[in-house]
């Protein structure tokens, strides 16, 4: 993001006062095998989903903490974005979905031998949530379990 001082006052204030959760410490898992032997999945908060899936919404104004599964072999033409926030530019994603959801870049990294393999499924949430209770208690653990069941070693997280 451009430096906070370069943003308009209303956007700057919204960013500084956004009620994101605060932690005192960090769960830490050291890398236990090379990336070139690891299985990698992509998880985004950009509000993408497969065309025809239920769009993200704002139930009772608290934010939508649900998630969507995007099979890795989905073509970019079949992915749309229903993120509720208007505070970001969508036009460059229209030009190239990889700017936010780097599905082609990850395939290239496998071909180059940098990444071992890719998960069959990627996952998408909608960010800019003002209440993450549902994410912490339900949908976060659900996706974590799916990732473990899929044999994923490393998750790449991308926002929008």
């Amino acid at each position: 993001m451009p430096k906070l001082e370069r943003l308009s006052e209303d956007v700057r204030d919204r960013m500084l006062n956004f009620p994101c959760i605060e932690h005192d410490d960090t769960p830490w898992t050291p890398m236990f095998k090379p990336l070139s032997e690891s299985n990698v999945a992509l998880v985004t908060t950009a509000g993408f989903h497969v065309r025809g899936d239920k769009p993200f919404g704002v139930p009772e104004g608290r934010g939508d903490t649900s998630y969507r599964v995007i099979p890795r072999d989905t073509s970019p033409g079949q992915i749309v974005q229903s993120h509720w926030s208007l505070s970001f530019d969508r036009t460059q994603t229209y030009r190239d979905i990889n700017i936010t959801f780097p599905m082609d870049r990850l395939e290239e990294l496998v071909v180059r031998g940098k990444i071992g393999s890719l998960s069959d499924n990627y996952y998408s949430y909608m960010g800019a949530l003002r209440d993450v209770t549902g994410l912490i208690e339900k949908t976060g653990p659900e996706v974590a379990k799916r990732l473990k069941d899929d044999g994923v070693d490393v998750v790449l997280l991308t926002p929008t």
Partner: peptide, 9 residues
């Protein structure tokens, strides 16, 4: 900028 996570399309 928001929406341009990896820099350039």
């Amino acid at each position: 900028n928001f929406g341009n996570t990896l820099g350039e399309a």
